[in-house]
Nucleic acid binder design. Structure first.
Lengths: 130, 130
DNA sequence: CTGTATGCAAAACTTTTGCAATCAA
DNA sequence: TTGATTGCAAAAGTTTTGCATACAG
């Protein structure tokens, strides 16, 4: 049965993640939490994130070229990652057709990972060129 | 200018990766290479993979719940990952519409990550149920 | 010859685990 | 009370780095 318990740590971890819009890695989230709550340990952050992922409270996001990131927004959506600075933003869900050849797999889901230039980097690039 | 040099190690690493269709992690690729060429070091495998990724000779594939994987197939394509056994297969590219709201980003590309059941796991599951 | 590339060993990280103490229910 | 949860420290695993040597061009 293993009833789950509510602890202050869990509340702080989820709150902090939801407040951060940057899709932090576990380590980044720990750093942020540690600033305000130095007593919360790294292992608790990792353990609680794993639990919350299982429970569907948070989403693990794996984008190229970085450790796993976490997202407190579990409503179906996609991500776009700035190829210049690495920032990650949420963008709306888009319906995608299934490919004709699925290599024998039965498709159950998908996500789209967009890459692009974030607003800041667009400006920076425009300035550099122009 | 830093001219790049051709070495036997580079040849072996690329050959082995292309021959493996399993989208191995750097560690898995090293194990396979090490079996036939025990003298090639782990650091060379990591270094060469990084270089080849920069040169566009191989692709780094990041799918949820595993270390980065490498793919010797650099022709534009998508991946599907079995949610039961973790196997990864190539599937054809699919055109995707851009979302209306791009969070201010300028979209330059995208990939679709499908999840599903591989042929073997479909059979296994059918047997389990039926 | 020159300086890139390699192998080795150590370092740097990230994530996981064992365990005694703590505390939510 | 009692067993899930925590913090600590150590372990495990992956990737990077410093450096002397080897070798491609």
């Amino acid at each position: 049965m293993t009833a789950k318990r509510n602890t202050p740590q869990k509340g702080i971890i989820l709150d902090t993640l939801c407040r951060m819009r940057s899709h932090p890695t576990a380590g980044e989230l720990y750093e942020e939490i540690h600033r305000l709550h130095p007593s919360i340990s790294r292992s608790t952050v990792y353990r609680v994130l794993g639990q919350m992922e299982e429970d569907g409270l948070v989403m693990r996001v794996c984008l190229m070229g970085s450790d796993d990131r976490f997202d407190g927004n579990v409503i179906r959506h996609n991500h776009i990652r700035c190829c210049r600075c690495g920032a990650v933003a949420d963008i709306p869900w888009v319906e995608v057709a299934h490919p004709c050849d699925t290599a024998g797999y039965e498709i159950t889901g998908y996500t789209v990972e967009y890459t692009g230039l974030c607003p800041a980097c667009r400006k920076a690039q425009a300035k550099q060129i122009g």
